[in-house]
């Protein structure tokens, strides 16, 4: 507790940095995965290749990826962009399959009805398919958000500061309180992300709660 009392300012600053580094991969990952998932769902032949291929991305070990990215992107070794891009790749890897499943969860009757009503395909995607895919999509997004928050810590190893700094520094200098603080702060942030997504889901999908209750 003593350590935290002296260093709380550092912990708060690192927490903000950690949050910032976590949000981008989730948001960008969703934006990239959404059209890919739609294509994979719409054109089954493409999907048979695209879904496993995107899943494979997740098997790339994180450290080599973070080290290889500066070479590929032409960024400096310490650039936080390396971390953000790497985590975005993982988010896409997880989300493409989830989006395909989410779109497949929309009832055929409802989809047929929306065609019969005269929705154009663009309107059908935004007003029918995507909202109804919401619950399944959200559960996938929650997994991605929490895993991203924990993966951001690894960035400290390649020199991108985050709460991971507390683990490294605490280990090196033998301060268990520092390591412990890093763990707790990361878990709290993961909970906050998860809670925020649940709240967004409640707000965006009021029909889900009313119907099941």
């Amino acid at each position: 507790m003593d350590w935290l009392a002296k260093n709380w300012e550092l912990v708060i600053n690192l927490s903000w940095v950690h949050i910032g580094l976590s949000i981008l991969p989730v948001v960008v990952g969703l934006a990239v995965a959404l059209p890919l998932g739609w294509v994979a769902f719409r054109y089954k032949r493409v999907g048979r290749f695209l879904v496993p291929a995107s899943g494979l991305l997740y098997t790339i070990p994180s450290l080599p990826l973070f080290i290889a990215l500066p070479v590929v992107l032409g960024t400096s070794i310490l650039d936080p962009a390396n971390l953000v891009v790497g985590l975005t790749i993982y988010a896409v890897a997880l989300l493409v399959r989830q989006i395909v499943d989410a779109l497949a969860s929309v009832s055929q009757d409802v989809r047929q009805a929306s065609v019969a009503m005269g929705y154009s395909s663009w309107q059908r995607f935004w007003r029918v398919d995507l909202p109804l895919a919401g619950p399944v999509l959200l559960s996938g997004l929650r997994v991605v958000a929490v895993s991203t928050v924990s993966l951001v810590s690894i960035g400290s190893v390649i020199g991108v500061t985050s709460l991971g700094y507390l683990f490294l520094n605490g280990f090196k200098r033998g301060i268990p309180a520092e390591v412990f603080t890093g763990v707790v702060a990361t878990v709290i942030i993961a909970f906050l992300f998860d809670g925020a997504l649940v709240l967004i889901g409640r707000f965006a999908m009021p029909w889900k709660r009313k119907v099941t209750s």
Partner: peptide, 17 residues
């Protein structure tokens, strides 16, 4: 064309959301 023609189906096909 579809907007100008009414359509009613089995299981209503209502938008649940």
């Amino acid at each position: 064309l579809r907007r100008s023609i009414g359509y009613v189906m089995q299981n209503s096909g209502l938008m649940p959301h």
